[in-house]
Design a protein around this nucleic acid. Structure first.
Lengths: 345, 345
DNA sequence: TTGAAAGCGCTACCAT
DNA sequence: ATGGTAGCGCTTTCAA
């Protein structure tokens, strides 16, 4: 008894229930008009043949796929599955499915956008960089886009992000107040918007404190690049810097390991190290990172809400929601006031 | 000049190019017959109006959505980003899109399956547990399923997995050879297939070595549960066990931290700790876990290939591909022979 | 409340 | 090689 038979359609159900096909459609729609008796017969017939509405066909006629695209790039300092899982769940609760796209090389972007356009997604969340032409394509198609943790200079597109600059300002401020004099930075990839903001935020605050001439070595968000970065810094100077500012937690951890293992330095006694993100490994006892935690849950919820609003009403103007991070004193840096984690002002 | 106008269809293109609609369709199909001159005119017209084939409509007629569902549960000890990103990329290279579903509570499973059925996915990869009824639903719909790192006892469904038992056998074997006498286990969640295999694999090997009466405390794959697990173990015995076997790396790390911080024990001098997974944090210098690395890349590629084969030919019998892990000696356990990582026999 | 009929945008088959 | 035509499975008027 092969079940390989074609899937049951609304016509099959209609025939069995002895009603019209449109009646079946109505029964499976939210607030449609259908008598109790008919609804019952239809549902029975449907159960009998294992009928289930075809979302693809529905999308064709309603012009709504109920799918959104989520774009991530590996270089995205995706602070973990967290973001992806939470986005997916939040969308799922609102009856929206997530189509996942990864962008490995910048050159793939156009084809990815092409793909999601072909799949008629209702909206896009991107944690990867999108260039002008691609944005215009989406805009032209009337597909709302929300940037996650990145924003366009001209604010012409909606975005949800953590205030990277503010976070770095807090870190640098605390380090400065604790008397650190010489600083160094391990940045993320040059094409990472997040890294650029963090790095420049730190540099700006340092400048305000009268500290310039801060060496910056580039990493790629990986543990190894954190280790390598610190080694590089040690080649540049006779003595280690008082403080190293890493563009994310994983590199901060690599940096600490290199300082300890390769150079026999104690953290934070000989050198302070700070990171950014505040998830997972930051709390490992061997590191207890001084860092800034992103409010991931609030951010993902805002993202979903913002996108859904714009799917409902495409004329809503772009909006940018910036979330403050939480300063985590940790124990990888000498700070003036060891306190509880606190929301940044 | 509002671009909010409806999207261009193949009819629009046909009109402009002065050809039939079916001609347009053919031009956008792989190996279809079309003269150079026509192809050129059509492509020009298409570019002019920004035409792009509607994948949804195509799916409706071809009965192929070119989408597969990927199911993950948060409790899945997925070496997450890795697996998900690699799966997505591998599918993407084959022209397949990934629809992502998360299963948080077991009770959500039926509705998730219902969803992916409605979306007419061509196949399913699941890293979450699927119960019998759901499997039958998928089977009845002719949708192939590949399990990732879990398998059904009766082998009636395709699966790709790492040989958890073999990995644990290696770990236990090495620990035994190095003279460890008393053991303890920190398992994962009871409903995690991976944890069950790892735990029972370790226990079996221990039994072979004549070691029974091994305390098992349950964790949830998290760092905190690793710490808590070790504390629990210390409550049960006067002395720490010679070796603790954690069901994953993150718990092993928590375990090490607790041993060091709360009990002043040295690892691996006072207590050996081993994990499983071999990704990311396992290599942090503060831990250098003795663990087993899963060949994630080979596994994800096998998964994609196996699923695609079954989408092409639904009559292919279920197949199970089991990959050997790589033993990573690390430095969190006293081993008889400190060597390079090596593929397990 | 219910049914008939007209598409949504595409592919596939059949003639030409 | 090209065009006409018939659907894929559904929602949505519009009458009855």
């Amino acid at each position: 008894m092969s079940k390989r038979s074609r899937k049951a359609t609304s016509y099959d159900v209609a025939r069995i229930a002895g009603v019209s096909q449109s009646a079946v459609s109505r029964v499976f729609k939210q607030g449609a008009s259908a008598s109790e008796s008919m609804r019952k017969r239809v549902l029975e017939a449907a159960a009998e043949v294992g009928y289930r509405p075809n979302a693809i066909a529905r999308g064709l006629i309603t012009q709504r796929s109920n799918m959104v695209a989520v774009l991530i790039s590996r270089m995205t300092n995706l602070n973990y599955p967290e973001v992806l899982v939470q986005l997916t769940q939040a969308f799922s609760e609102r009856g929206i499915r997530v189509l996942l796209f990864t962008i490995e090389r910048e050159s793939e972007t156009p084809s990815v956008v092409e793909q999601l356009l072909q799949y008629q997604v209702d909206g896009v969340v991107t944690a990867a960089t999108l260039q002008g032409p691609q944005l215009e394509l989406l805009d032209g198609a009337g597909i709302p886009v929300v940037f996650y943790n990145r924003s366009l200079r001209d604010g012409r597109v909606s975005a949800v992000r953590c205030d990277q600059e503010q976070g770095e300002r807090w870190l640098v401020g605390e380090l400065g107040a604790a008397g650190h004099q010489s600083f160094a930075i391990i940045s993320g990839p040059a094409d990472s918007a997040v890294s650029v903001e963090r790095t420049s935020g730190a540099l700006r605050r340092l400048k305000e404190l009268g500290i310039t001439n801060v060496p910056v070595v580039q990493g790629d968000y990986s543990y190894e690049s954190g280790r390598h970065g610190f080694a590089e810094l040690m080649k540049m100077r006779a003595r280690p810097p008082d403080a190293v500012i890493a563009a994310n937690d994983v590199m901060a951890i690599g940096c600490i390991d290199e300082a300890r293992e390769a150079f026999g330095l104690a953290v934070p006694v000989d050198v302070s190290v700070v990171g950014f993100d505040g998830a997972g490994p930051a709390a490992f006892a061997a590191y207890r990172l001084t860092t800034v935690r992103q409010p991931v849950e609030r951010m993902t919820h805002a993202t979903v809400q913002m996108l859904l609003e714009r799917i409902e009403d495409p004329d809503l103007p772009p909006e940018e929601r910036v979330f403050a991070g939480t300063g985590v004193p940790g124990a990888s840096a000498r700070l003036p006031s060891p306190e509880e984690p606190r929301t940044l002002p």
